[in-house]
Each structure stands twice: as structure tokens, then as C-alpha cells.
Design a protein around this nucleic acid. Structure first.
Lengths: 228, 228
DNA sequence: CTCCCGGTAGAACGGTCTCTCTAGAGAGAC
DNA sequence: GTCTCTCTAGAGAGACCGTTCTACCGGGAG
């Protein structure tokens, strides 16, 4: 692997674990197996530029997981629920450490590092674009696709944080269930009509959601038990 | 205001904006209007202890907003949606800077500062407890209450991050809509503890809702710590 | 051989970090 | 007046920060 890729990868790993400010250049050099001079040879912009490269790299990799995980499910609602379950499993297996560095860095530096905030915004916009294209391809209206993408991303990032703090998979279960239910309600509400009407009327979602007989809504209610 | 409170408050503000690692003791001293020595006089544990106090203080203030904002709505679903709308408005009004310090610090330090992670976990567990008690009082089953609380908290924290990065209120709109829909679906699905009766008779909830457990509940607007 | 060059090394620099230390102001007791 | 205790005040210690700088290595061109 090329040195610059290795550096960016090591940076992504450190950002994921401890954020931007706490990650030192020397620590990064050690982790990447490169001397300090090499870091500045490959990235003239120093720490900031390396972090930007790491964010872009990670962002591109993460959004590929969306189709990868959802394609396996014919029903989008169950697919989304299992996506959250997978994320939870992954976090638990890595000792509640596996978190998206984009979220961490954004939370930490949005006010103090304008350049990094811009990079994070670009990454997120790519996520929204790619994701909403995918959901549109799976049959949702454009407006609904956008809503679902934003909701999924928000819930994921938030569940990362809660799970990381509480060392519990419960945030993922809850987020997965609510989003699965929402997507199911979209499917049941408008089997074929272009959702333009629903989106325009706006307040419609407070009306009773038809939950009649449906092939595969998220599974029946279960009592949430604390995950150790 | 007492010096130690002022210190913790200034710390909360800084954590909110730039996280734990990037916040220096001297910067904090300047912000709090206290010399370095006073910081260590009031908090022998130094930076870490001040951060812990700030997290506890903020956490207690934030969860009070839940009943404060939701009590205004007879319908829980619309209440939740408007809660997200309020959060979005507040962030926009503060230049996309108003974020929960608990989330930022957890994301940043969960692996490197075990003590802070534990404090964050306690705060989050309090949120879940208080919140699920509230939703139970509003007519949801205990299991549903817990799910809704986790989903709301996850979506909120995640929307904070996305909105902060993208400078857009869209994450809040999407999260509010999906969660409103979910709560509405719960209401429509199991009218055995009839929400209708509750709404019509005007006999409104609040039996065991914890109110006034603190001398000064925050204002109805978000930013319980509005002392820049 | 020399010259050049992408890349590897890491020492050195000025600055900032957290934390400790000493000094003293102010109030109350005697 | 002195003694004590709480809190303010900030200089200083020692470590580490991001960055820059110089030195070195290997190999293709002349």
C-alpha cells in the first residue's frame, strides 16, 4: 500500500477513536509507520490536510455499505432494520469503538476548523445523494427518499454516540425499529402513487397510518432488554 | 453565581463548541473569569473533573426540556415533531453551533477517558429513565416508551451532527417526521389504554412525571446554558 | 564518477499544554 | 494586633504540540 494511503488510513482510525484535537502528529507517524518528515512530504497541508483526506476516504467507503447491506433484502423496511442490527453487532464486536470518524470530527471541529467542516459537509452531501438515489431506485419517491436518507444517517450517527457511551445495543434496536416502521408505512400508504401528493400536503403523516396486513413489517414487539 | 458553577458552565459552553481535547485550562479560566489556581481549588481533579461536572449539569438541564416542550401538545406525535422543529430553529439561530456537549464529548473521549465516558453514560441513563417515565405517563407501554426515548435521543444527537456539518435543518425535519409517524402508529395500533379518552376528557397525563426536581428549570427555549 | 530527485529519517524550534507552587486579599475569632 | 481558613491570583515547571529544517539513501541520466 502506498505511503500516503497508509497515512490517511491510520489517521482515519485515530480520528474514529479519539477525534481530531487529541490526535497528535507524532502519534500518527508512529501508527502509520512513517517518520514525521514523510507526513509533510505527502501532505503539505499538515495535520488538517491528512484529516481531510481521511474523512473523504472513509466517507466514500461508508456509503458503499448502504447498497451492500440493503440489496440482500427484498423488503426495504426489514432491510433497514437489519442494517441497524449489523451496525450494532459491529460496534459490540469492536468493543464499542467502531464509530464513523466523520461524525466525531464534525461534532468537534465544526466551529473551529472551517476547512474540515466543509470537507465533512461534502462527504455528507455525497451520502445523501447516493443514498437517496438508491432509495428512489428501490421505489420510494424522491421526497421520501431524501427524508429516509436523512433520518437513517441521523439515527445512525446518534446511535453510534449513545451506544458508545452506554455500551449498549439498545439505541440501534430502537432506531432500527422506528425507521423500519416508517419505511413500511410509506410502502403501505401509497403502493404506486407518486408520493408527490403526500409530500405536498405535508401534514398527512399525523393521520392514522394504515397498518393492515402487510408482508413484512418489522417483527413483532419484543421487550427490550439491556445489552451488557 | 458561585465560582464553581460559573466554571462548570463555561466548560459546558466550550465543550459544546470544540470538544474536550481542544479546550484548554487557560482558555477555560479566561472564559470563566477565574484564574488558573481557582479552577484547581474548586475542582481538585482538574480538567477532567470540571468536564464531568459540566456534563452532569448540562445533562440535567437538557432532559427537563422534554416535558417542557411536549406538555404543550395534546398529541404526542405532533409534539415530537415540533420538538425537532424547535431544536432545528434553535441551532439555526445560534449559527449551527448549539449542540449537546454530552454527545460531542462522548464521541471524542469514550475510548480515551474512561471516567468521562462513565459520567456520560450516567447522564444518558438518566435521560432514558426520565424520558421513558414521561412517555409511559403519556399512555405508551413501558417497552414502547423505552424504544421511543432511545430513538428520539439517537435521532437528536445524530441530527445535531449532520445539521452542524451541513448547516441545514433538513436532518431535523426528516428525523421529526419519521419519529412522529412512529409514535402515531403506536397510538393507532393499540387503543386499549385509550389515548382518545385521555385527549377528550382533558384528564392529562402527568402523574409520575418528574417536575420541578430542580430549583430553576430552564426556559422553554433550548439552551439551558445561555450565558455566553 | 557526478548530479539530481522522490522519499525516508528525526533533531530542533517556538509555542502551548496541564498542573503545581507560592503569595496574598478578605473575613471572622479572640 | 495575630491566627486561621477560603478563595483569588498568576508565575513557573516539565512535557508535548505542529511544523520546519537538514541530512541521508537509492538509482537513473549524463
Amino acid at each position: 500500500m502506498d505511503t500516503d494511503e497508509r497515512i490517511a488510513l491510520a489517521m482515519a482510525e485515530l480520528l474514529r477513536k479519539q477525534g481530531y484535537a487529541a490526535t497528535g502528529i507524532n502519534q500518527l507517524a508512529r501508527a502509520a509507520g512513517a517518520p514525521t518528515g514523510s507526513l509533510y512530504h505527502h501532505f503539505k497541508g499538515g495535520k488538517r490536510e491528512i484529516a481531510a483526506a481521511a474523512l473523504r476516504q472513509t466517507g466514500a467507503a461508508y456509503i458503499q455499505l448502504l447498497p451492500l447491506l440493503l440489496d440482500a433484502h427484498d423488503d426495504l423496511a426489514t432491510g433497514i432494520e437489519s442494517l441497524f442490527a449489523e451496525a450494532a453487532e459491529d460496534m459490540r464486536d469492536t468493543g464499542w469503538a467502531n464509530m464513523c470518524p466523520v461524525g466525531t470530527v464534525t461534532a468537534e471541529t465544526a466551529d473551529t476548523e472551517p476547512e474540515l467542516r466543509k470537507v465533512a459537509a461534502e462527504v455528507m452531501e455525497t451520502w445523501v445523494e447516493v443514498g437517496s438515489r438508491y432509495f428512489t431506485a428501490r421505489g420510494l419517491s424522491e421526497a421520501d427518499s431524501r427524508t429516509v436518507v436523512f433520518a437513517v444517517l441521523s439515527a445512525l450517527e446518534g446511535a453510534f454516540i449513545l451506544a458508545r457511551g452506554m455500551r449498549s445495543a439498545e439505541p440501534f434496536r430502537a432506531a432500527g425499529r422506528t425507521l423500519g416502521t416508517y419505511v413500511a408505512s410509506l410502502r403501505d400508504e401509497q403502493p404506486k402513487t407518486p408520493a408527490r401528493t403526500r409530500a405536498q400536503t405535508g401534514q398527512r403523516h399525523h393521520a392514522p397510518v394504515p397498518r393492515g396486513e402487510s408482508p413484512g413489517p418489522p417483527r413483532a414487539r419484543q421487550t427490550p432488554n439491556a445489552a451488557g
